[in-house]
Design a protein around this nucleic acid. Structure first.
Lengths: 194, 194
DNA sequence: TTCATTCTGAAACGGTCGTTTCAAAATAAC
DNA sequence: GTTATTTTGAAACGACCGTTTCAGAATGAA
């Protein structure tokens, strides 16, 4: 055949994801992306179609990473309440140290796009319900194992907990040193075992 | 003196607030604002300085309206738990009918700006803590009156409830017909009186 | 080595951005 | 009615936007 690509598509996506995460979709220009990734515009357009295509790919990557992270925590936590606790703990402490921007790209995209782009909306809703389902499954297990005594429908508890997580994540994006996450975590844990 | 203004500053702010609310800061252009408000660029720049100044003024207006709304609900609700319930109910039902865009301009601004604009950040944090304080006060009252039996620190409960509200509002911005708000509300009310 | 194919880098495209300018229109005071 | 002050409308500004183009560099196959 002919010449092979000089850039790594994964690395380009990683950088694009970070830029969109930090600055949002509209505020991230193609030139910003070219500078951060080091590739040229012709390569970018050949690989991803256009700016929106690159964003959708980067957002899908974010969602996949976040779902994998949540699933891994769910699988390794000794009990469902500890799983829930670790969701909040990860939000509070470990993510900032990993060099990622604050907050959540998915939540930022929810706010920026709302219902204005059906592809973005579909991606975000699928992501939301996938994570809700992981939490839901854990809560069901907890009720069966009696590590959770609250008899409320586990799906309702799951939506409540996920909403609380999202609310905390939003505030954390504006005030990264928000000190009340452990307190909120304790309240939520007390909800599982009143 | 001389000629008097032909436009009403309040109405211009109202329109600007709606546009920023619907589309975000970056995605709302000066030309969009001129078309929606009917004024000319010279008038706009004379009255608000620049685009960012107009946004800050519109955002401050939104925050003032929201705080007044929450305070009014707090004052008129028969008991603190009913007050909390009405916060969720208003989010679920009445706002969409009023012709306002979905979601919350304050939450959208949190996501769009993060920590990148200190003036925006300060405004949003002040708004956040003002509403948290209203809820906090109501919960303290509820504990004193025994309409709330959960003995947890009311400030912790307040942050938890506000976070949940914000998480629900975020999802509502992407899926206005989200059907589980009443279920989440019931879970939160059960938290107040376990 | 030659040829065919693919990727790259840089320049350029028209359009839109936020903002400024300024002459003409309007009005309060005299 | 004249004057002084302020607002308005329209045009224009340079900068940046997302995107396209294409000659030339690079590389696998013959």
């Amino acid at each position: 055949m002919a010449r092979q690509k000089e850039f790594n598509q994964e690395e380009v996506l990683e950088q694009a994801m970070r830029l969109f995460w930090e600055n949002g979709y509209k505020a991230t220009s193609i030139r910003d992306l070219l500078k951060a990734t080091g590739i040229s515009s012709s390569s970018l357009y050949e690989a991803f179609g256009d700016k929106r295509g690159l964003f959708l790919t980067a957002l899908a990557r974010f969602c996949a990473l976040e779902q994998a992270s949540v699933a891994q925590i769910a699988a390794s936590a000794p009990t469902p309440p500890v799983f829930i606790e670790q969701l909040f703990t990860q939000l509070d402490g470990t993510l900032p140290m990993s060099g990622f921007p604050r907050g959540s790209l998915a939540l930022n995209a929810m706010a920026e796009f709302g219902t204005l782009d059906t592809d973005v909306t579909q991606l975000l809703l699928a992501h939301y319900f996938a994570i809700a389902e992981i939490i839901h499954g854990a809560l069901k297990r907890g009720q069966a194992e009696h590590t959770i005594t609250n008899p409320a429908p586990p799906l309702h508890l799951a939506y409540t907990i996920l909403s609380t997580l999202h609310g905390v994540a939003m505030l954390k994006g504006v005030r990264p040193d928000f000190a009340y996450i452990p307190a909120v975590t304790r309240v939520i844990l007390s909800l599982l075992n009143p």
